[in-house]
């Protein structure tokens, strides 16, 4: 479904991604794990067109999207929930969800119903300004907003960041549910343990390079991973 082939991304002179290749197949949950600054978010940003690769190519549903403008990707079925949620804080919850369906406003109503069913907390707060929501609620809103475009592939950047453990578990079970309903997921996480538990496959990034890949289970059992990312 998504094929990333040998991309090299630079921030000015800093070589941030050094020849990353990965692929995501229909129906999978693929996790991208690694330490701070390893290039996980950069990878997602490059896929969604916010950054450009100097070499290589990115294809989505057999179409080359390496040079497609970011705003055109949503309509193709690619949604990106960015790091830090980035909800529209001055808009209401409803308005945020409507923005999610910007490219295809035809079934806003049905979409909002679906989102409220999945995130009942948002329903109670639908007329509230997003800036007044808690961190967990904002994460739910950002995911709900992305779901509004009915994506085929959803990329999530650090959905657990700054959330209480109980909320993290809730968010991860929602990701799993979304996946079971047919959305393919590419997940970036620092919380490697949680990510590997739900991931079909995972890639490990270290200073801009892929160092390991395997199924979630394999990596969970690997000594290297245990040492580096799971605290022994």
């Amino acid at each position: 479904m998504l094929k990333v082939n040998d991309i090299n991304v630079y921030y000015g002179k800093i070589h941030a991604l050094k020849g990353i290749s990965l692929d995501v197949k229909q129906g999978e949950i693929v996790a991208l794990i690694g330490a701070n600054g390893a290039g996980k978010s950069t990878t997602l940003k490059t896929i969604s067109g916010m950054l450009r690769t100097k070499t290589g190519s990115i294809s989505f549903l057999d179409e080359d999207i390496s040079h497609t403008e970011a705003h055109k990707l949503v309509a193709k079925g690619l949604a990106h929930v960015p790091e830090g949620r980035r909800c529209f804080l001055q808009m209401t919850v409803m308005e945020n969800l409507e923005m999610g369906a910007y490219t295809d406003p035809s079934n806003v109503k049905a979409g909002i119903e679906d989102v409220f069913e999945r995130f009942p907390r948002l329903k109670h707060r639908k007329n509230q300004i997003a800036g007044t929501l808690s961190g967990g609620e904002q994460q739910m809103l950002a995911m709900g907003r992305a779901l509004m475009s009915r994506p085929k592939l959803m990329m999530l950047d650090e959905p657990s960041m700054g959330l209480a453990p109980i909320l993290v578990e809730q968010i991860f079970s929602i990701i799993k549910e979304m996946n079971e309903m047919g959305t393919t997921v590419l997940l970036v996480e620092q919380n490697a343990g949680m990510a590997l538990e739900i991931a079909d496959r995972a890639y490990v990034l270290e200073s801009g390079r892929l160092v390991l890949s395997g199924t979630g289970k394999e990596l969970l059992g690997s000594d290297e991973i245990k040492k580096a990312y799971l605290g022994g």
């Binding site: 705003h71 923005m99 910007y102």
Partner: peptide, 8 residues
């Protein structure tokens, strides 16, 4: 950035 990700 977020607006762009909404397809704007």
């Amino acid at each position: 950035g977020a607006a762009e990700l909404m397809g704007i």
